[in-house]
Amino acid sequence: MTHTIVPAKVYVGVWAVLIALTFTTVAVSKLELGEYNFIAAMTIAVAKATLVVMFFMHLKQSSSMVRLFVVAGLFWLAIMFVFVLSDYLSRGWQPIGQWW
């Protein structure tokens, strides 16, 4: 088929990084960083998800058509979040800046 075959070494390497990042996220959550705890946890989660999508799900080698669809899907997810949060955060129910 079309895919150039990724060597197994790459998969094992990505796996090792994912496991290391899992330990990192647990370790970082034990530090007192205030609101940065949430930011750090989400940054690590996004990094892990990106590794899975790029290497395990082969998006790195996928056609631009597939990539365009993935970006469009994430854009639509962003629309949903922006519209929901712009409603709830602007109601004055809770002071903004406290939510983590």
Partner: peptide, 9 residues
């Protein structure tokens, strides 16, 4: 992280 690690400190 969202369910297990919030307010973990």
């Amino acid at each position: 992280p969202l369910l297990y690690l919030i307010g973990h400190t």
